[in-house]
Design a protein around this nucleic acid. Structure first.
Length: 243
DNA sequence: AGTCATGTTGACGA
DNA sequence: CTCGTCAACATGAC
């Protein structure tokens, strides 16, 4: 469920409930979910992988982690974490992390860090990258304080498209290359969104979970990389290692 | 059937 | 105090 584009799809699906009152709340969340009862959902926002259900003076932050899911006007037998019941429909969340954020949601987030936000600030990302020259690019791309919304799939695809080895040091990558990576982190996220809506995401993967490099026709390397120890798929022939 | 995976947090110890 | 490591959470696809 996770990466940023999936959250935008969730937001769209739930948008019809904006302006409507939550008439009942259910779920096994250990947070004070009953605060939501009889409150009007005034907006739905997203920041990276966070889905934000905004009420007058607090916001419910939903994070799907690895296995979280949701259903709109539908349900399944898994334990219900949180259910928002409206007069004309429901939003159900399963195994998601729920957190209440107090006050104005804008005080909690820097929207310009979200690669899919209208306010995305490429220069800010470049500036932050320049401050971590000794980190591996595979870790930097997953850094939510720099590229909120980018997950492991986007990481693997962007590095493959830009021909950079995941274990390259940020500070050793030629300037033009890392500028391209920053741009691609955003543009690929929108491609991901389009393909996911068409249910063709998987078939568009060039690197992630692939066995063979289509450019070189040789086997991919598949290994966990970086401090974050997440799986990388890469070709050592066409992806340059900058160290 | 077992493994792996679109993720993050908090506890603990060095 | 900061860093690294690990468990915990919990589900579905292959």
């Amino acid at each position: 469920m996770p990466e940023g584009p999936s959250i935008l799809i969730a937001k769209e699906e739930m948008a019809p409930f904006i302006g409507k009152k939550v008439v009942a709340v259910e779920g096994n969340s250990k947070t004070e979910i009953h605060r939501i009862e009889n409150r009007v959902l005034i907006d739905i926002k997203s920041w990276g992988k966070h889905l934000l259900l905004c009420f007058d003076d607090f916001t419910v932050r939903i994070h799907f982690l690895l296995f979280g899911s949701y259903l709109v006007n539908d349900h399944k037998t898994n334990p219900l974490r949180l259910s928002l019941i409206f007069a004309d429909g429901t939003i159900n969340f399963y195994s998601a992390s729920i957190k209440f954020l107090e006050g104005d949601v804008n005080t909690h987030y820097d929207w310009s860090v979200d690669v899919m936000n209208d306010d995305w600030d490429e220069e800010k990302a470049l500036m932050k990258l320049s401050k971590i020259p000794n980190q591996l690019i595979c870790d930097a791309l997953l850094e939510q304080d720099i590229f909120a919304g980018v997950g492991n799939i986007i990481k693997n695809e962007v590095l493959y498209i830009e021909r950079v080895h995941p274990e390259s040091l940020v500070g050793k990558i030629p300037e033009k290359q890392w500028k391209n990576i920053v741009k691609k982190a955003r543009s690929y996220s929108f491609d991901f969104l389009k393909w996911k809506k068409e249910f063709t995401l998987r078939q568009h993967w060039l690197a992630h979970r692939k066995n063979v490099c289509q450019r070189c026709n040789i086997p991919f390397h598949k290994m966990k990389t970086g401090k974050k120890n997440r799986r990388s798929y890469f070709c050592t022939s066409c992806q340059t290692l900058y160290v």
